[in-house]
Design a protein around this nucleic acid. Structure first.
Ligand SMILES: [Mg+2]
Length: 310
DNA sequence: GCGACAG
DNA sequence: ATCTTGTCGC
C-alpha cells in the first residue's frame, strides 16, 4: 500500500480557489492521527505543479509551512483567488473543501489490525530460546522514502552470530498506531534474507502495548508466525504504575528504568509478558537490548554511507 | 498555551 | 524517524 500516493491523490481533488487542511486530508485517509504525516507528504511532494500542496493549510486557518517558503505558498494561494491576511486564510469556511472521493484506506488497515489482534498468542510457544535477533530501520535524510533495515542475531552469550542489512524504498509515512504498515515490508525482507532462523525476534516498537493490541512486534509475529518481543523507547498508550503498564486495567507490558530514560517491553506474539521481560533483561547492557542496539547501529551506519555518496 | 503523539 | 508543510485535549 502506497499511502503517499493515496495522500497525493486526495490533495489533487482540492479545486483552484479552494483550500483544505492537513486534518481534513487525514480524515479522508480515515484517521485524524495522520495529520502530521500529511504534512510530511506535502514536504516531500515530488511534483508540486501536479499536486497542489500549497492548497493545504492548518486547521486553525493559518497557512502553515511550505518548503519553498511561506511567502511562495501565500503567492500561489492568492494566484488562485484565495485571500490571505496576516498569514491567515480569509473567509476560511467559504473556501474550505473536504468533499473528497476516498475509500478511507486507514479504516481498512484498522480493520485488518483488529483481525490480526485476535490471532496474537500470549503463551510461550517456541522450541528454543538460543538465537535472539534484533531488527531496526533507519531512514535517509537525503531521500525521505529510502530506508535501511538491519537484523543482528546473537546467542545467549551476546556473541553476534549473523548480521544482514538492505536498502529499500518505503512508501508509507509514520502514523502513530500504524507503524507496522511503514516498517513491516522492509523488515519482512530483511528477515527472509537471514541464513539462520532466530528463535525469537526483538523489534524496536511495541508488541501488544497498542490501542488495538497489535503494535509492530505483534503484527510481525502474527504475519510471519514467529515469536516476537516489542521494545519501545516511548509510551504510546497505557498507564504505568510500579513498572507495570496496563491498558484498561489489564497488563500489557513493563517499564524498565535501568538507564537514564526508560524502555517499555511488551510481548509480541507466541510469548508471555513475563518471558518477554526476562529475555530483554538478559540482553541489557546499555539502554536497549544488545540485538536491537546493534541492529540500530548497523542500519544507521549503512544509510549514512548511502547519504554520503549521493 | 503546553505537552502528547511507538518509529 | 529526522531537522520537519499538524492537531487535539488538558
Ligand atoms: Mg527504529
Amino acid at each position: 500500500m502506497d499511502l503517499f500516493e493515496e495522500i497525493y491523490r486526495i490533495v489533487r481533488q482540492v479545486p483552484r480557489g479552494k483550500i483544505s487542511t492537513y486534518g481534513a486530508v487525514a480524515r479522508a485517509l480515515g484517521d485524524i492521527r495522520a495529520s502530521r504525516a500529511v504534512g510530511v507528504a506535502m514536504n516531500i511532494n515530488p511534483d508540486p505543479e501536479f499536486t497542489p500542496c500549497y492548497r493545504i493549510v492548518n486547521s486553525d486557518g493559518t497557512v502553515g509551512g511550505f518548503s519553498m517558503g511561506v511567502d511562495e505558498k501565500i503567492r500561489r494561494l492568492k494566484e488562485d483567488g484565495i485571500e490571505v491576511v496576516n498569514g491567515r486564510i480569509k473567509n476560511f469556511e467559504q473556501v474550505f473543501f473536504d468533499d473528497f472521493f476516498t475509500r478511507y484506506p486507514l479504516k481498512s488497515l484498522r480493520e485488518e489490525q483488529i483481525r490480526l489482534s485476535r490471532r496474537v498468542v500470549l503463551d510461550d510457544s517456541f522450541e528454543k530460546d538460543e538465537l535472539i535477533a534484533g531488527v531496526d530501520v533507519a531512514y535517509s535524510r537525503e531521500n525521505k522514502r529510502l530506508a535501511c533495515a538491519a537484523c543482528v542475531i546473537m546467542d545467549k552469550n551476546l556473541n553476534v552470530v549473523e548480521q544482514k542489512w538492505l536498502i529499500d524504498d518505503v512508501n508509507f509515512p509514520y502514523i502513530p498506531t500504524y507503524l507496522a504498515y511503514r516498517e513491516l515490508p522492509i523488515i519482512t525482507e530483511i528477515i527472509e534474507k537471514l541464513e539462520q532462523k532466530p528463535d525469537i525476534l526483538m523489534v524496536d516498537g511495541n508488541g501488544i502495548l497498542h490501542p488495538f493490541g497489535i503494535g509492530i512486534a505483534s503484527h510481525i509475529g502474527v504475519v510471519m508466525d514467529i515469536p516476537t518481543v516489542g521494545v519501545a523507547k516511548g509510551l504510546l498508550c497505557g498507564e504505568e504504575k510500579n513498572g507495570i503498564i496496563t491498558i484498561n486495567g489489564s497488563l500489557s507490558g513493563y517499564a524498565l528504568h535501568h538507564s537514564k530514560k526508560p524502555i517499555f517491553v511488551s510481548p509480541g506474539h507466541r510469548i508471555s509478558a513475563e518471558t518477554a521481560l526476562k529475555i530483554v533483561k538478559h540482553f541489557l547492557r546499555y539502554r536497549l537490548p544488545e540485538p536491537i542496539r546493534h541492529a540500530h547501529i548497523l542500519a544507521r551506519s549503512k544509510i549514512a554511507e548511502i547519504d554520503r555518496r549521493t
